[in-house]
Design a binder for these strands. Structure first.
Lengths: 109, 109
DNA sequence: CAAGTATGTGAGTGTATGCTCACATAATCT
DNA sequence: AGATTATGTGAGCATACACTCACATACTTG
């Protein structure tokens, strides 16, 4: 049986993962892989309501995935922990792997 | 502007992350780090409804995170892509990192 | 083949999440 | 100071998700 303290940890780890589990947030993390960007650079790349992006940035910041820095009118966001970028490539290889196994399974039929 | 094909990729990457973004599923991935387990081994570790665990396993399998293998009455689950285990340690260091920065920010006040 | 064991599924309900709109704040510029 | 630009926030609605219960399937064993 998993004890309460361990569940708390799993809860918070899940929160970090939740913070990345949305296509728009994946896109933002992808953009930030090459360094910090201000909101005004992120908005034109992602075709959706401005305030929506603000909220996605807030979610990731609250979860500890992003860090923000204000410079004049602009707010710059960056990845707080670079390892989160690996999530994306691992997710990609998971998809590839599954596609390959599914194809093999079909071939067997 | 991000094109449609790239959004499709982000969508599917987000699906993989969603498949891990739940405390129970984090716990299961944690268990499977040391190798495959049958459902009957997972259930007693996690104190919740049996059918609920079935559904969480189905979600992760559909997303390509887990693989299942039937042996007699039992079904054994394992990680399809070992790199997903890194998610947990990266999530943990994200939490640690954020805590450290928050503490530093408080100290500055 | 009947009973038992291990696991999966569909329907219904409650809660959480995402999105948009109107409004708020904060720094800059004239 | 007043106007403008960049960003954030709260309320309300729509959708998605997690959970439970009753039921279904599939293999095994007497």
């Amino acid at each position: 049986m998993i004890d309460q303290h361990t569940w708390d940890l799993y809860d918070r780890q899940a929160d970090v993962l939740k913070a990345l589990a949305h296509p728009i947030r994946v896109a933002i993390v992808h953009m930030l892989q090459d360094g910090e960007r201000c909101v005004c650079q992120i908005i034109p790349e992602i075709d959706c309501d401005r305030t929506n992006i603000s909220k996605h940035l807030a979610i990731m910041t609250r979860a500890g995935v992003l860090r923000s820095r204000k410079d004049g009118l602009k707010v710059y966001y960056s990845l707080r922990t670079p390892c989160v970028a690996n999530f994306l490539s691992c997710a990609a290889s998971t998809l590839k792997n599954k596609a390959a196994e599914d194809a093999k399974a079909l071939a067997r039929i």
